[in-house]
Amino acid sequence: MAGLAAAPGANDAQNYRRAPGLFAWLVLAPLLAWLVLFVVAPTVMLVAVSFAERDALGRIVWIFTTENYVRAFDWLWLKVLLVSVWYAFLTTVICMAVGYPVAYTIGRAPPRWRSLLLMLVMVPFWTSFLIRTYAWITILSKEGLVNSMLLNAGFISQPVALLYTPFAIVLGLVYNFLPFMILPIYTSVEKLDNAMIEAAYDLGAGPLRAFSQVIIPLTRPGIAAGAMLVFVPSIAMFAITTLMGGGTNPTIGEVIFKQFTSGRNQPFGAALGTLLLLIFILALWLTRKHREENA
């Protein structure tokens, strides 16, 4: 079974890759230009600003200082970061568990239904974020739908506080990020070979074993991509956490945002942002190195 799980062709990849000719460079050029202009340049500016001072309005004054970093290495900001990462992690795991069966079902549906189902996953998010979130607030509040249903059914005698709790934060995050897990997993499920799955069942594997030993390993690239697309953006996400969580536990995105607004300290915000980028890039680089060494 392990042999089945390894992505076919992975070993050939080294030989398969070609050295780029002039044409390949030309095709890559737009992406390179885009990266240099709109990703590298802003990042360089960000790092430069993080070593600057600021004036009373929070604007940048170009005097070199490392004070922003001295200040950033404080237990307070680390705690904020840990809370954010923890929520992002929970969100990713739950999205994976909730989303996988959905992605699988869509990916195995008759081909002509797939695009429609995929779109059905996305359409709820073509509404305004604020209305969606306020709808959730109405549903979860003490006088909301869930509480009145539970009260009527006699499960509870007093309204339960659902809103402005960690539960509400995670629910809000899962709701908003679920499609970003379902879609990439769907892409991997969609290309599964029917014969492979049937073979697994034919070999006498029960559904659980067929799943854990054949199907999940085969769709691992999609799961990994989905995890990336959910985990990474949800670290810095804060509108949902403040609206549904009541704002009692600030996240790193909110703290950085406030440096640019009410805190009026752009350089410090830039320093926190640079550290966030560094930690993230380092973690990603280590994982990839680890994976390549194992491969």
Binding site: D55, L76, P250, R264
Partner: peptide, 16 residues
């Protein structure tokens, strides 16, 4: 002016 940064940190630190 620059005190707004300290005010912000004060409240944030008490929230966390």
């Amino acid at each position: 002016g620059a005190q707004s940064s300290k005010i912000d940190e004060l409240v944030t630190s008490l929230k966390v």
